[in-house]
């Protein structure tokens, strides 16, 4: 195990990403039936350059947490901090977000969608075009840059959304169930490609997912959340070495980690 740890430490040391912390986050929603406690005293640390998963039963508040990290939702209590500084609104230069494919702007081409974050920041046309084409090439869409979303398949659209998240070269990448709308084969392929891209630039990644296999396969650490009100039940270190390969899915470690997460979620759901 000492060997495995060394590999991981090395990759972290080579990273450029920023760290992200959630500190004592409590959140209430106003509903017609009164206030609803959605998150209760949630704290965790995402170290710079690591790939962290967030899993939990439906409605546990993991998407709300991600919105908070993106600066789109302010917690009722507690704070999100990037490099120690409180997040009080979107930080587009530091934080990229990958939503589901339905977040692509349908009137823009693949290239224009990928450029969009740079366009909003007023980056020069040629510079952003070059950056977008490079990212689209990297996700295998070099020949489809001028297609609009309705002319692309679900997997291709999600590749565009990923390229858009990486295009502005943020320190932190937040991914909100990016593969949820895809079939299993496409989602496995994309997960693999995502790791490949991530290996090259080692962003800090927070990845919200429903898929436990995906969480174990992709992440360095998985945060397991309880049913509402959402709390962190456990932080599970994924001790598999990198680069990850499909063969690892058949290993005992992989199965044990996946079973451990499932056990936690099953218990919290039963309550």
């Amino acid at each position: 195990m000492a060997g495995l740890k060394m590999v991981r430490t090395d990759s972290v040391a080579a990273s450029a990403g920023a760290d992200l912390r959630a500190e004592n986050i409590t959140h209430m929603f106003d509903t017609d039936d009164g206030a609803l406690l959605a998150l209760k005293d949630v704290s965790f640390t995402v170290e710079a350059g690591t790939f962290v998963g967030l899993v939990g039963p439906s409605g546990c508040g993991k998407s709300s947490l991600l919105l908070m990290m993106a600066g789109l939702l302010l917690p009722t209590d507690g704070r999100i901090a990037v490099r120690g500084e409180t997040v009080s609104g979107p930080l587009p230069e530091d934080i990229g977000v990958v939503f589901q494919e339905s977040s692509l702007l349908p009137w823009k081409t693949a290239r224009e969608n990928v450029e969009f974050p740079l366009y909003l920041r007023g980056v020069d046309r040629q510079v952003r075009e070059k950056a977008a084409l490079k990212m689209l090439d990297l996700v295998g869409l070099g020949e489809f840059t001028e297609r609009r979303p309705h002319e692309l398949s679900g997997g291709m659209k999600q590749r565009v959304a990923i390229a858009r998240g990486f295009c502005q070269d943020p320190e932190i990448l937040l991914m909100d169930e990016p593969f949820a709308a895809l079939d299993e084969q496409t989602r496995m392929t994309l997960g693999d490609e995502l790791l490949h891209i991530w290996d090259q630039n080692k962003k800090t990644v927070v990845f919200v997912t429903h898929s436990l296999t995906e969480a174990v396969f992709l992440c360095d650490k998985v945060l397991v959340m309880s049913a509402r009100p959402g709390q962190i039940l456990k932080e599970i270190d994924i001790t598999l070495p990198r680069p990850r390969t499909y063969e690892m899915m058949a290993t005992e470690t992989f199965g044990q980690l996946r079973a451990e997460i499932w056990e936690l979620i099953r218990e919290t759901q039963a309550k």
């Binding site: 993106a70 600066g71 789109l72 979107p90 587009p92 009137w107 974050p117 909003l120 920041r121």
Partner: peptide, 25 residues
């Protein structure tokens, strides 16, 4: 709301939201 959420996350100003999201949509 997905379009608006995305644009806000990428730091769109109010003016950009109107001109680049609301108007074309």
């Amino acid at each position: 709301s997905d379009f608006l959420k995305t644009a806000r996350a990428y730091g769109a100003s109010r003016r950009q939201l109107y001109l680049d999201i609301y108007l074309p949509a």
